[in-house]
Write a protein that binds this DNA or RNA. Structure first.
Lengths: 158, 158
DNA sequence: GTAGACCTTGACGTTGACGTGAAGGCCAGA
DNA sequence: TCTGGCCTTCACGTCAACGTCAAGGTCTAC
């Protein structure tokens, strides 16, 4: 199949597929007129990439899965390198969830206090700068690079 | 105080402070030689901004807090607009935490299955593409734009 | 034979929060 | 006076994952 069909079937764009090729994640035979030609395996590959991106992996992190599939494995996560990424992601996710829950707790506390200040006697004992105090009270920013934008599928899925 | 001192005291860079000014979040008197001149209130303002950025707010979202402080309030979150941002952030955070926990659960399941496949009889019944199945099983990507990079302080704090 | 739908490569634009120079002014100390 | 350290304003670079446009080749249908 050609790039347009693969893009449609994968719910993405031709630009995206060319980008994956550019990054070395996807490769394509060429037909006589120079058009890219893909097969079912390529489609699976793209679906794997999109799925992993969708759950917060970045492109580089999908590489082991892609290579695992290309090595003939039935699933992208059958190889040690993929499992390692799984584990790393799990750790990141845990750190991220922890951090977010900490922030959430502080936010709830702030809202609580602000509300009481406006309802009750106007003079609740609060720190000078609530946000600063909240941030200070959090365990030191522990490498928790949390990001998970749900990316491109959000646009397509609406 | 001049920009260098404020930057150091706020644990950030002069470039950052000029950027905040450019975005209209910070303003400065000028001394006779054209240098920016800041006071303690400005320092508090910058600390507020940094604290909010640190817990996942983007710059634009800190604006109500900044304006609240500049309006003479003791705390940046005493104004309705700030509280509204708090509430919005709380909702975002909840959605984000939910999503991450969902993903976490699937990741754990994947790791589990992969491990059993390698330990036990080599033939565990698994879906064709684990990651894809995991993504499909998640409740449809619900606008959850999760992001929380801990930003620039991570570099300074090491 | 020509419109239209596909494909090609190349290259610049997007978003946020700054980093990193360049080119020059101001000021204190030796 | 001169070195060094601060400051000033441009203005381009960064990172990811593509979007978007341009100029042109290819293929099918009418």
């Amino acid at each position: 199949m050609r790039i347009g069909e693969l893009a449609e079937r994968a719910g993405t764009s031709t630009r995206t597929l060319r980008y994956y090729e550019e990054r070395g994640l996807l490769s394509a035979r060429r037909n006589s007129s120079g058009y890219r030609d893909y097969d079912e395996d390529d489609a699976r590959l793209v679906r794997e990439i999109r799925a992993l991106l969708g759950i917060g992996f970045d492109l580089e992190e999908t590489r082991p899965f892609v290579e695992c599939l290309r090595a003939g494995h039935d699933a992208g996560d059958e190889c040690p390198a993929s499992v390692a990424v799984y584990r790393r992601k799990l750790a990141e996710l845990d750190a991220c969830i922890d951090r977010m829950q900490g922030i959430r707790a502080h936010l709830v506390a702030q809202l609580d206090q602000t509300e009481r200040a406006h309802a009750g006697g106007e003079r609740v004992d609060r720190p000078a700068t609530p946000a600063a105090a909240a941030a200070a009270a959090l365990p030191d920013p522990p490498e928790a690079r949390c990001a998970l934008t749900a990316g491109p599928l959000a646009k397509e899925s609406r």
